[in-house]
Design a protein around this nucleic acid. Structure first.
Lengths: 156, 156
DNA sequence: GCTTTTTCATATCCATGATTATTATAATCC
DNA sequence: GGATTATAATAATCATGGATATGAAAAAGC
């Protein structure tokens, strides 16, 4: 008898959760000195690509609830990273715009992200790294499609 | 000009964060019906492998702060999943033991985890799946060693 | 033995995210 | 065009996790 108990740390859910937690913790420790957090960098990065989104649209892009975006943009507006402007035609909607401070901070955050990524993927060959990214991308598309079946991954 | 802006969603940090968030959200939705959460499953799974740990030891195993474990075990003790018992020799220490209800719930959580993993990794070959797990495991080891240089990954 | 240092658990505060409900505003449907 | 329905933002509540600080108890130094 004395069955070998299953090793939970080898399961995909545990693993990806752990890697994200450890990676994110380390990233947070470093971007903290520029006054940002991991989640805020995510918002900044998305707005940088598509400035002037509504909160609802941003929530869609980030696969998050509108509520999470409402509070996040509250904090980020208070911190001066972005501003909210009324939509000219629809008084329900607030459009989000990056402030000038955001671009430099985002560039620095990218440098930090590169550095943490290098730490996390140390010892992996270039092939292994691209394979890892491709497989994660596939998993991300799978999971996103489960929630929004109409979603089609970008092609360009 | 009109430089192409960097696609943040392709970065490792964003990707692994997103996959963990989407996977965890889906897992949470399902284990909720047995009264558990993702984080609690993580605790249950670890205690199942090594019952009778101190909170500090559990924090080490989970790569988390003792404070996070203190609050987590508070909630889980109140919910009846585990109990705290005093250490016979050291009055600072509380040892954690799973209650009977935990084992069945954990088995069900594993089934749910298998199901979500299958959804997330749909379309990946067996080779790709094992490669993904192996690469994530490597990243996890890398990141863990940055925080605890003495850490050595299990060999058996 | 007694002081200093470590260690264990925990209180407090903040950031994040999910759920649920509410309010204001648009859009749609007879 | 007035009632119904849908959508945008947000409030309130809970679970989670990091950072800092604290009290109690054990270990180490002398």
């Amino acid at each position: 008898m004395d069955m070998k108990k299953p090793d939970f740390t080898q399961r995909f859910g545990f693993l990806v959760n752990d890697v994200a937690r450890l990676h994110g913790r380390r990233f947070d420790q470093r971007v903290r000195e520029i006054g940002l957090t991991r989640a805020q960098c995510r918002v900044l990065g998305t707005l940088y690509m598509r400035d002037g989104q509504s909160q609802a649209a941003l929530a869609e892009l980030l696969e998050q609830t509108p509520m999470a975006i409402a509070r996040m943009t509250d904090r980020m507006e208070a911190a001066g990273w972005l501003r909210r402007e009324p939509h000219p035609d629809d008084r329900r909607i607030k459009l989000l715009f990056l402030n000038d401070a955001a671009e430099g901070a985002l560039r620095e955050a990218m440098r930090i992200g590169d550095s943490v990524q290098a730490e996390a993927l140390a010892g992996l060959s270039d092939d292994e790294t691209s394979q890892l990214l491709a497989l994660l991308q596939k998993a991300r598309t799978n999971l996103a499609q489960l929630e929004r079946p109409e979603y089609v991954p970008p092609d360009d």
